[in-house]
Amino acid sequence: MRYKKFGKTGLEVSQICLGTWGIGGAGWDTHSDEERMDAIKAALDCGINFIDTAPAYNAGKAEQYIGETLHHLGARKDVVIATKCGNKYVDGKYIRCGSESLIRRQCEESLKNLQTDYIDLYLVHWPDPNVSMAETIGTVAQLKKEGKILHAGVSNFTKEQIEEASKYCEIEAYQPQYSMLDGDNEETIRWAADRGMGVMTYGTLGGGILTGDYREIRTFGETDNRNRFYPYFREPLFSKVMELLKVMDAIAAERNVPLAQIAVNWTLQQEFISSCITGAQSRRKVEENCAGLNWNLMDEEIICLNKAIKCYRQ
């Protein structure tokens, strides 16, 4: 595993952060409780010391898996936990909730679920257009003063929203979507990194399509996140992704590596990224993703990939 300073926080985090949206279980493939908790253990075994979660990941279920696993292993103090507020999961729907009362309640529930008395990094999951930034971020600032959270950040905010949030609390981390398939946030990412924020990006594997496991269009359920959130699994993007996969296939064949490792490598070789979030629900997938840090893409491979990415994004 490789580690990197996380902006100005003073934290040193693994360059792969374990994402637990899938581990929570809602809107993804079905795995047993044992498999999900073993995936968390596998991450620690591979040297990952950074875990991302949220109460919105199946109404706190992902947090509970993390809390139980870290408690069983006695590993809480060895792990930087990032969890969130401002978004809740109710009856298969995600609802933004940035009020002071709801954020305080979510914080207490997260502390209980995670079996801890502090949260290393607390992120506002999504801005709530119906609640003032002063109320939402001001509540996070107060939680920091109380010692319930150590560092504050935001996810899915625009540059302008981050600037406004910074009026009420120091924003130390930024979590946007970013991958070979989605570069919309790159300008804001660079801006945030230049200002000393730790940058942890999500969607590294494009919801799984960059693993190469999806070569034909499939029909997913209405609440499946490959249908609800990621647009790559249907046209017009699906065919364009398949063209990009052909370039990845050639590199994978030459190196004898899985495609997921190429996607991870490409992301982490962007100097402005501190850590990339990679979701996995099994030990095998976690180990496979982490093994991608045993090698680097060569300059000519990056040039080839970037050319294909440019074609995809046109």
Results as ranks from 00 to 15, higher is better:
K8E: 12
L11R: 10
Q15T: 15
G22L: 00
G27K: 07
M37D: 10
M37N: 13
I40Q: 11
D45Q: 12
T53G: 04
P55I: 00
N58W: 00
A62R: 03
T69L: 04
T69N: 03
H71A: 14
V79G: 10
V80A: 08
A82E: 01
K84C: 00
G86E: 13
N87D: 13
V90W: 00
K93C: 05
E100C: 09
R105W: 06
C107S: 11
Y118I: 04
D120S: 14
V124E: 13
H125Q: 14
P127S: 05
G138K: 06
A141L: 08
G147N: 07
K148P: 14
V154D: 15
Q161H: 08
E164A: 02
K167V: 01
P176M: 03
N185P: 08
E187G: 08
G196I: 03
M197E: 06
G198F: 00
Y202W: 15
T204G: 01
D213V: 11
R234A: 12
M242D: 04
I251R: 03
I251K: 03
N265M: 03
N265D: 12
L268M: 11
E271C: 04
A280H: 02
R284W: 12
K285N: 12
K285L: 09
V286R: 01
V286L: 01
L293C: 11
N296R: 13
N296Y: 12
M298D: 14
M298E: 15
I302Q: 07
I309Q: 03
Y312K: 10
